[in-house]
Design a binder for these strands. Structure first.
Length: 201
DNA sequence: CCCGTGATTTAT
DNA sequence: TAAATCACGGGG
């Protein structure tokens, strides 16, 4: 029987959550179709002080409302007129911090993933980017604000009982936030060092 | 390198 | 109301 990550896992410091999500399994069950992938790359967004975060300066809008919810909810946003990106909200209610999921190692439903992502040439192309994984797992704004702790459709399965060794995790600056002044270079991106499924090969 | 694409945000 | 922006991806 699979175990889900619990509320207390998500209700912690967002940097810890970003690191410790690595190696767990993001699952979307849609009817009979189960699609999933191991989380191999994440980024932490630290909320009000973070110039790269959607909730910078306490911005609270219809789009980012779910970032203000309790840890363990999804925050799915739409951008560039065509892409969705999936975040896991961390911390507690009214603490608008989240973890962007940047890459997965496909596990279940790879045939469906190839169908949804005709541009993918091989398994390592399927989910190697935040919008790619959203497309492969068919996650869009309809799955915004989902409670990952309670949902039967979208959840994260605990794969390991104990945290990863720190030597298995690499750290670097976040991608695509050149405008964020002193926040641009902070090491808030995390990935599994030995993974070939990350977004920037 | 450049460009699609349109919701969302920010400036007037 | 108008203009700018955008936590990206695909094709040269």
């Amino acid at each position: 029987m699979p175990t889900y990550l619990t509320r207390s896992f998500y209700r912690r410091d967002v940097v810890k959550v970003a690191r410790e999500l690595l190696g767990h399994l993001l699952v979307h069950v849609n009817g009979r179709q189960r699609v999933s992938g191991l989380i191999v790359e994440t980024e932490a967004y630290l909320g009000i002080p973070d110039k790269a975060a959607h909730t910078c300066n306490g911005r609270r809008t219809a789009r980012n409302e779910s970032m203000w919810r309790d840890g363990g909810h999804t925050y799915v946003y739409f951008t560039y007129g065509m892409h969705h990106c999936v975040n896991v909200v961390a911390g507690v209610e009214d603490e608008p911090v989240a973890v962007l999921l940047r890459a997965l190692e496909p596990v279940d439903g790879m045939q469906a993933m190839y169908r949804r992502r005709p541009a993918a040439k091989c398994d390592t192309d399927l989910c190697s980017g935040p919008a790619k994984l959203a497309k492969a797992l068919q996650i869009d704004r309809q799955l915004d604000r989902i409670d990952l702790v309670k949902s039967k459709r979208v959840f994260i399965e605990r794969i390991r009982a104990t945290p990863l060794q720190s030597q298995q995790v690499a750290t670097g600056p976040r991608i695509g936030i050149a405008h964020a002044a002193e926040w641009t270079h902070k090491p808030l991106r995390f990935w599994l060092k030995n993974s070939t499924y990350i977004s920037h090969k």
